[in-house]
Amino acid sequence: MSGPDNKDFEKLAIPLLDGLYNFACWLTSDTDEAHDLVQEAIVKALKGFASFQAGTNFRAWMFRILRNTFLTSRTGLERRNTTQQDEQGFEDAVISPDTPELAMLRRADAQLVQTAIANLSPVFKEVILLADMEEMRYQEIAETLDIPIGTVMSRLARARKQVRDQIIAALGSKKVVGIRS
């Protein structure tokens, strides 16, 4: 049945489809699987929409459903079994201020950055996707991933450091930057 609730849901959900699909593609690495994942998440969200509290963060709620759906999928379960990298060393992630690094980051083309993101482990990939692509605040990311804000910060810093290190390694001048450790 299509009723007033469905219309409200549609108004909120349709503008998020691009972001949800992009997120799903990165998580699954497969556009067909991403298509199915988004549809499955929409079905679950629609069923639970009556319990959704107006005034709370719909975007975080939708992304959480999508992510949880992914985690319980076969691909998601396989990815969860991959090694989780330790989350210590938040301070290590501060970027060294060497100017050549900035020049190299500017030279990094989209394909190189996409490869670096794709190489991240799932916990780092999801946090960097939400922060830098969806431009979510830390609080919103914490709600989506159901983790403390401190964990968001440490994962995000580690994720960015790994992307940066991969870019610099790929551009072949790792020696010109100093990484604090």
């Binding site: 992009n22 190189l112 960097i128």
Partner: peptide, 11 residues
């Protein structure tokens, strides 16, 4: 760079 590269897929 991450933002530009990451917005790779459109529904």
């Amino acid at each position: 760079a991450i933002r530009l590269a990451g917005k790779r897929f459109s529904a």
